[in-house]
């Protein structure tokens, strides 16, 4: 009785107000688990360097979170798994061949500056892993855009550098891309499997979809953001992606290459930094898609998923405020 009474006391808190038994830590660990297939495929294609880079990110994330909380006398929240997930996501967003100081500095920026300085989990404006990646991409552009050729060879430390499909598409065009992969069908299968140059965890579309399906089945993520994000990318790629004019682009290449799958399912859907209303999530997804394609087709970088999500993160409070669901019986009267 006492316990029930306590629950019914008025508590002023930020949204979401309805809470189930799903705790933060359970969600974080499940999301981490769902990234496992993509991580394994990354480790398979890019070898031990990929595993080491990701491990450095995770260890640095845990250490820097603990260190910051110790210095500032805050509660120890390492076990909620959010630092682990940030480290894992950042690691999977880096090329396998980066020098070891890059994951370390990127993770410190992600955890300390992006998350803890803003007040810890739940108060950060931007997705920490993406800010970490943006920081190292701008800081060491050369190392961050030198990709390794996927070789599927275990225990290989030397790497041949190769361009990503989007990089080739931007610099040399579709014909060169097709020449490299044989024919179109072969290109699609290679992209689906993940046998291409890119960041550790972004290449294998199948593995990412597997993890995403698990999350959707568990109802940890809804499909509003991923579908509107990917849909917008597809439409714009079809409309403007082709060299011969309107409606000649190839949406499949744009969907399956770059960091779109990883970004749309695992990073744009981050609870803290995406809108909480469904309508807002669709707006958020469309915005991400628009910015991504703007950067891919017109910008200086071949890939724009990261910047797109970060830019839309800024708009999250605005979207939430303006598309808040209406309370029954109140709005109509005022309108008249």
């Amino acid at each position: 009785m006492e316990a029930i009474k306590k629950q019914h006391e008025l508590v002023v808190s930020v949204s979401p107000h309805l809470k189930s038994e799903e705790t933060t830590s359970r969600i974080m660990w499940t999301v981490s688990l769902s990234l496992l297939p993509a991580f394994i495929s990354g480790a398979y294609f890019f070898g031990p360097r990929a595993v080491i880079t990701t491990a450095i990110c995770i260890i640095t994330a845990l250490l820097s979170e603990r260190a910051f909380q110790k210095i500032t006398n805050r509660e120890d929240t390492i076990s909620d798994g959010s630092a682990f997930l940030t480290g894992l996501l950042l690691g999977m967003n880096l090329p396998a061949t980066v020098p070891f100081y890059i994951p370390i500095i990127g993770t410190v920026v992600a955890i300390v500056i992006t998350k803890q300085l803003f007040g810890g989990l739940g108060y950060n404006i931007f997705n920490p892993a993406l800010i970490g990646r943006a920081f190292v991409l701008i800081t060491w552009p050369r190392a961050m855009t030198t990709w390794m050729k996927p070789d599927a060879a275990f225990m290989r430390f030397d790497a041949i550098s190769a361009a990503t499909p989007l990089g080739i598409l931007k610099e040399e065009g579709l014909a060169k891309l097709l020449a490299l992969f044989g024919d179109k069908l072969n290109l699609y299968t290679e992209l689906l499997v993940g046998h291409r140059a890119g960041s550790i965890g972004e290449t294998s579309v199948i593995a990412l979809l597997l993890g995403a399906a698990f999350l959707v089945y568990k109802r940890y993520i809804s499909l509003h953001i991923p579908l509107s994000f990917i849909g917008t990318v597809a439409v714009i790629a079809w409309l403007f992606g082709g060299k011969e004019g309107l409606f000649t682009g190839d949406p499949l290449i744009h969907i399956m290459s770059g960091g779109l799958m990883l970004g749309a399912f695992f990073m744009a859907t981050d609870y803290v930094t995406c809108p909480s209303v469904k309508k807002g999530q669709i707006v958020f997804g469309i915005g991400c898609g628009l910015i991504t394609m703007l950067i891919r087709l017109k910008g200086g970088y071949p890939e724009g998923v990261m910047f797109a999500i970060l830019l839309m993160n800024c708009f999250t409070p605005l979207i939430d405020r303006n598309l808040r669901s209406k309370v029954f019986g109140f709005m109509k009267k005022e309108a008249k």
């Binding site: 701008i138 060491w140 552009p141």
Partner: peptide
């Protein structure tokens, strides 16, 4: 290797 971001 310098951290390029700081002069941007």
């Amino acid at each position: 290797k310098p951290m390029l971001i700081f002069i941007l």
